[in-house]
Design a binder for these strands. Sequence first.
DNA 1: GACACTGTACCGGCTGGACGGTACTGTACC
DNA 2: GGTACAGTACCGTCCAGCCGGTACAGTGTC
Lengths: 186, 186
Amino acid sequence: MSIVSTSNTRDRILDALQDILISDGYSSVTLELVARTAEVSKGGLLYHFPSKASMMVGLMERVRALAEEEFREAVVSEEGVVRYFLRTSLPQTSAEGELYWAVIAALRSKEDIPPEAGILVKELFDRWGDLLHAELTDPVLAETIRLAGDGMYMSSIAGLGRPDPVLTQQVVDRLAEASDRVRRER
Amino acid sequence: MSIVSTSNTRDRILDALQDILISDGYSSVTLELVARTAEVSKGGLLYHFPSKASMMVGLMERVRALAEEEFREAVVSEEGVVRYFLRTSLPQTSAEGELYWAVIAALRSKEDIPPEAGILVKELFDRWGDLLHAELTDPVLAETIRLAGDGMYMSSIAGLGRPDPVLTQQVVDRLAEASDRVRRER
DNA sequence: GACACTGTACCGGCTGGACGGTACTGTACC
DNA sequence: GGTACAGTACCGTCCAGCCGGTACAGTGTC
């Protein structure tokens, strides 16, 4: 079987899984709920994914494909990696970001999530770090940007902190401007 | 292992709960495991806490007491709020930090954790934000520090990013130095 | 072009185990 | 004799994975 399936049902199942993960968290993910959301029977779901774990892995594989496209886009973009990263760190602008955190939260809770899923998400985060460090000559600033970006995800998704978009945007702007002074030539 | 050694059974139960939360996550918390870890029978546990939820609330109340002490200490400390916050954001130095994240992860996963627990943790995070903003005349820097601190917790606890303590320390130092230039008088 | 057969896609009921909570009885100590 | 447990048996619920089906579209064969 090829990685890209022609089956529409398979993608519908992954869509359902993703929606539930984002809105309700991993602990709400049951085979029955995913099946119902995807308008498939439980048996039909298990035909495509023989276990809950394999379903998660299927989703992560799809996520990886999207993420790699995003990395390529960030590198060649006009705005540069820093602005791209910080922009997509604002959760309003990124549905995938929410998905990552849902997986991380599930990992932290040691829910019986397949290791591959965790490893993949970690790789994606590391990749952003690598790109930031490659873009800037100042590793301390690069790391600060990485940490602040992670904090932004966190803050809003966990519902922490005051939701002050203006202030957050000012942080983004200041970090972006600082990065302009230490950007490596392409 | 427990942070505080006590002869009191109630505290022993909360210690066990905390240990399990930190090391294995909320989904691993079962009445039986907590009881076994605390070397209490299940009946004994339910004598002190009539439900799993009330046990969590009990832990959160104890956490709040410790946190409030920490806030007072941070404000009157020689190093100031910024350094205190960033220092305790490095998870190696803070067991409570890990506990907060365990609760946040559980919240994100929508596990049937009592609402009070989530509200309390959110309040504690907000409080740090308030203290940072009160300490500095530059709200953008205060917010950057808050975000970076949250990112540090995240990064290491979720196992994200390269574990580069030297680089992380440099970030801390730079933010702390920057804060020295905009510190409000006491 | 009717027949036999095969693989794909999907349905839905069932079971076995885990877990929260209940409900007792027993016991040691003050 | 009340407090602080220990010990255990049990109930209801939830859920993952399994299994026995169904429908149907090919595909070769004569």
